[in-house]
């Protein structure tokens, strides 16, 4: 139990600014994606094992609550992807650039790229939820 406390207080208390935030966000988004991925493999497997259950799962995904979760999921996928590319690039090609200044700069760029990729997708998904769940035509009806 002390390991849990030590690790969690370390996560929360370490003051590493951008590099630390990137680490935390990478973990949170990664855990979020792998949680959904596990559920998603099982729900898609229903098309073979129990087709009626697949339709139930779809009905659940079409609700507003899951729609909001889906918008968050897309952010997770974009942030984890851009940040993962950054990590893989430095580790494999430019290990000499692992410096605090470089981390601060590239983390900010990573977040900006992720948001730019995510925003149009998020707007379109909000449009879909409003259209299909509330009959509100935002645009492109």
């Amino acid at each position: 139990m002390s390991t849990l406390k030590t690790t969690l207080t370390g996560y929360a208390g370490y003051r590493g600014r951008e590099g630390h935030w990137a680490f935390l966000l990478h973990r949170i988004t990664g855990l979020g994606v792998v949680l959904f991925l596990t559920i998603h493999i099982v729900d898609i497997a229903f098309v073979y094992f129990q087709p009626a259950l697949f339709l139930d799962a779809l009905a659940l995904y079409q609700t507003t609550l899951f729609g909001i979760g889906e918008i968050a999921l897309i952010f997770c996928v974009f942030f984890h992807g851009v940040n993962g590319l950054r990590i893989a690039y430095f580790d494999m090609f430019k290990p000499g650039l692992w410096s605090i200044e470089m981390q601060r700069k590239t983390t900010r760029t990573t977040l900006i790229i992720a948001i730019i990729l995510w925003l149009p997708a998020a707007v379109w998904m909000v449009r879909n939820i409003l259209l299909h769940n509330y009959g509100i035509v935002l645009f492109g009806g």
């Binding site: 899951f66 999921l73 897309i74």
Partner: peptide
């Protein structure tokens, strides 16, 4: 990214069935 953009944004869960 292709999978997520195609299924979640372009097609969307409302257009899916068996």
């Amino acid at each position: 990214w292709i999978h997520a953009i195609l299924q979640d944004v372009v097609v969307g869960v409302h257009a899916m069935d068996l």
